[in-house]
Design a binder for these strands. Structure first.
Length: 490
RNA sequence: CGGGGCGUGGCUCAGCUUGGUAGAGCGCUGCCUUCGGGAGGCAGAGGUCGGAGGUUCAAAUCCUCUCGCCCCGACCA
């Protein structure tokens, strides 16, 4: 009996996304808690891989982890005018505790700038205390009207870096250092190309003077903000009175930054690489690298095959790989193939009696060409030196996924100079990455959004997108210094 | 908050119009056969039909109220 199939992307991309998550057992709607998700072990394992790699990068750039309270006094949120305007609508508020009404309500943290500002003011008094480089791994809550698993949920997991510096220049250097950490991580580990840029005033973080981002291309042509890094200027320093004395004895407010990525990255990973057969994971993101499926008929075959499978697994594990031997009884090999594929395991090894005789194993990458009969291509490789062979296959696969993702983005990226062309790209719910000129005003940005649902994802940094060149705004014809990135977004 | 939909074994749902002993498929448990791309047979376990009230000899089904969730739109990492 065939299992319920994953909806093909061509039929319904949103349904496909949900099907992939369900079939790979990554997460599910909590149901009993509105807008919240349960991250299942396989999904959480992916998040842990992200955490481990990022945490190493944060430590390598001098940051230390800490943890601040989940509950924040409401008065804190109100101290920074733009911040409170931005976040007030999505706060969950605690009014009662211990059977009594609280004197001052708390909100569940939507982000921690305010409470960290409070503590920075206690901890910082001298330029010798700077820079203060803190990161927090935490859960936060934003009461969203519309949620999508991993991409936007009421509660989500993330890291938030918070730093304080003596000069604006130092803070800006930090903002861009961490943006590059995110971009490098996305490229090297997630095999996901991104575009680094600056957000328009309209899309800026509430309370920041500048917000930078990495934008990733999803298979349906939409953009997804995969990470952000903010220059907070002295806004929170002034709101929370975070002052220091410099070497000359002058007092000044600190210059702060904050930066974060969240479990949303799991959604980005899915929509960058996965296909109609389910989840596809780059080896560096895979909780299980290799699944070994033993093939046998009789008991004596079973014993011999399993012994060989264990030997291979041991060799691969010595190389640091996570290997699963699928020796479940009563399940045919084909069913096991489908299961490991929909869970995104990058490489499968089949080993049976014929292999034992020949001293070989059968290997199958998660994404493979199909032969003339429509069957996926498998490779016979010698058991001798299996560790080296598998290592190379996984490295190549990691690179191939990046190349494929980049090629898809490039194939769906266009430069557009007329409004008619621009509208056509975004007609009927479609989206691409569009480089177009814009006159720099929020008014025009909103008019374009109103007409097409496309928004400015970012103003590209040097080296991203087409070389800067003056032109005329796609909408108003007014002068524009450079093209900006438009797309519909998640 | 507007518009739509749904609450029935673990999951997906049928049954409701026209009230009469709670069903199917998948999954699960056991045994047997099978095993290089989604196996089959036999035997079994499992449900206060979201909740409360009402009508009735009799309610999953009709009526009233209520709770919850999902989808679409307005806000957002």
């Amino acid at each position: 009996m065939a299992e319920a199939k994953i909806t093909p992307r061509s039929e319904d991309y949103a349904q496909w996304y949900q099907d992939v998550i369900a079939h790979a057992e990554l997460a599910e709607q909590a149901g009993v808690v509105k807008g919240c998700m349960v991250i299942r072990p396989h999904g959480y394992a992916i998040w842990e891989k992200m955490q481990q790699d990022l945490d190493r990068r944060f430590k390598a750039t001098g940051h230390k982890n800490a943890c601040f309270p989940l509950l924040i006094p409401m008065s804190f949120i109100a101290k920074e005018a733009e911040h409170v305007d931005g976040f007030a609508p999505e706060l969950a508020i605690v009014t009662h505790a211990g059977g009594k009404e609280l004197e001052e309500p708390y909100c569940i943290r939507p982000t921690s700038e305010t409470i960290i500002g409070h503590f920075f003011s206690k901890w910082i008094s001298s330029h010798r205390d700077l820079p203060m480089l803190i990161n927090q791994w935490a859960n936060v809550m934003r009461w969203e009207l519309r949620t999508r698993i991993f991409l936007r949920t009421g509660e989500f997991l993330w890291q938030e870096g918070h730093t304080a510096h003596a000069t604006h220049a130092d803070a800006r250097e930090e903002v861009y250092r961490m943006l590059d950490v995110y971009a490098d991580f996305a490229r090297e580990v997630m095999a996901m190309p991104t575009i680094r840029g600056v957000k328009t005033a309209n899309e800026r973080f509430a309370g920041a003077v500048e917000t930078t981002c990495i934008e990733a291309f999803m298979q349906d042509g939409k953009a997804l903000q995969a990470g952000t890094s903010h220059d907070l200027g002295q806004n929170f320093g002034k709101a929370f009175d975070v002052q220091f004395q410099d070497a000359e004895g002058k007092r000044d407010y600190v210059w702060q930054t904050s930066w974060g990525v969240s479990t949303r990255l799991v959604g980005a990973l899915i929509m960058t690489h996965s296909d109609d057969d389910g989840l596809v994971l780059p080896p560096k993101m895979a909780p299980i690298h290799v699944a070994i499926v033993p093939i046998y008929r009789k008991d004596d075959e079973r014993a011999a095959v399993l012994a060989a499978a264990n030997k291979i697994a041991a060799e691969l594990r010595d190389d640091g790989l996570v290997v699963e031997i699928d020796d479940r009884e009563g399940m045919k090999p084909g069913a096991k193939y489908y299961e490991w594929e929909r869970k995104g395991v990058p490489l499968r090894i089949e080993i049976g009696p014929r292999d034992l005789e020949a001293g070989t194993v059968m290997t199958k990458l998660r994404i493979a060409e199909t032969d003339a009969n429509g069957k996926p291509k498998k490779d016979v490789v010698p058991m001798e030196g299996i560790g080296v062979t598998v290592g190379r296959m996984l490295d190549d696969f990691q690179q191939a996924l990046y190349d494929r993702a980049l090629a898809l983005r490039e194939a769906n990226t266009v430069s557009v100079d007329t409004w008619a062309e621009f509208e056509a790209v975004f007609a009927d719910g479609a989206s691409k990455f569009v480089w177009a000129h814009w006159d720099g005003t929020t008014e025009t940005e909103l008019a374009i959004k109103d007409a097409t649902k496309a928004t400015i994802r970012c103003i590209p940094l040097d080296g991203e997108g087409p070389a800067p060149q003056a032109g005329a705004c796609i909408r108003t014809g007014k002068p524009s210094a450079q093209r900006v990135l438009f797309a519909k977004n998640y």
